[in-house]
Computed example of a mutant assay.
Amino acid sequence: MNERLAKFAIGQIVKHRIFPFRGVVFDVDPVFANTEEWWESIPEDIRPSKDQPFYHLLAENDDNTYVAYVSEQNLLADDTGEPVHHPQAALIFESFDHGAYKLRPRISH
């Protein structure tokens, strides 16, 4: 597979190109790293290629919040400057400023 650099950064707010949701990136896989079952659940006519970055998002739409896994080709930068209202955002990020989140420091050995 041909890995490439991710277009979006952790803490950046993005929106889906097709579906009405947005979210903040909290992790990035350089290529598809989910299950085949998940992959095959995507309708074949809109199934993205696996050899691109995939993003883990704390996502929201008008009705609820959830975690989403989205291919780079299906994301656009969100230019609203507004934070997401996901309840887990405060666990991962320490602040929101100038349209992006800053990760909390991690304690490690």
Rank of each mutant, 00 (worst) to 15 (best):
E3Q: 11
V84P: 00
F26H: 08
W38S: 10
E40G: 06
D51V: 12
V24F: 03
E37A: 14
I10R: 05
F26Y: 15
N74L: 14
L75I: 10
V70Y: 00
D51H: 09
F96I: 07
P83F: 05
P105R: 08
G99R: 01
T80K: 07
K15Y: 07
V25Y: 00
R17L: 15
D79R: 13
F32V: 05
A89G: 02
Q52G: 03
I92E: 01
Y55L: 04
A77K: 14
T80A: 12
S41C: 11
S95T: 08
G81N: 10
P20G: 06
A68D: 08
A59N: 03
Q73S: 15
V14A: 04
E40F: 11
R22H: 06
P87S: 05
Y69C: 09
P30I: 04
E94D: 13
P87A: 09
A68T: 04
V84Y: 00
G99N: 08
T35P: 02
L58Y: 02
Q12E: 12
E60C: 01
V31G: 02
L76I: 11
T65Q: 08
W39N: 07
E3L: 15
V70D: 03
P53F: 00
D29K: 07
E72C: 04
W38Y: 13
R4C: 12
Y69A: 05
L91W: 11
Q73F: 10
K15I: 12
M1P: 14
G23R: 00
S49M: 07
E94K: 14
R106A: 14
P43D: 02
K15Q: 15
E40N: 13
N34L: 12
H56R: 08
D51W: 08
E37F: 03
F19A: 13
A90D: 15
Q73G: 12
S108G: 09
H16L: 06
F19H: 12
T65R: 01
E40H: 05
Y69T: 03
K102W: 11
N34S: 14
S41P: 05
P105H: 09
L57H: 00
G11N: 03
L57A: 02
D63S: 14
D62G: 13
W38D: 11
D29M: 03
R22M: 04
L5A: 15
S108Q: 09
Y101A: 02
V28M: 10
L5T: 09
K50I: 06
V84S: 01
W38K: 11
F93M: 04
F96Q: 07
R106Q: 14
A77P: 09
L75T: 07
P105K: 10
K15N: 08
L58D: 00
G99V: 06
K7A: 11
N34F: 14
N34H: 12
M1Q: 12
D27M: 08
F93P: 01
P20L: 02
K50Q: 09
S108V: 14
Y55A: 01
G23V: 00
H16W: 06
E72W: 04
V84W: 02
E3D: 08
V84A: 02
Q88T: 06
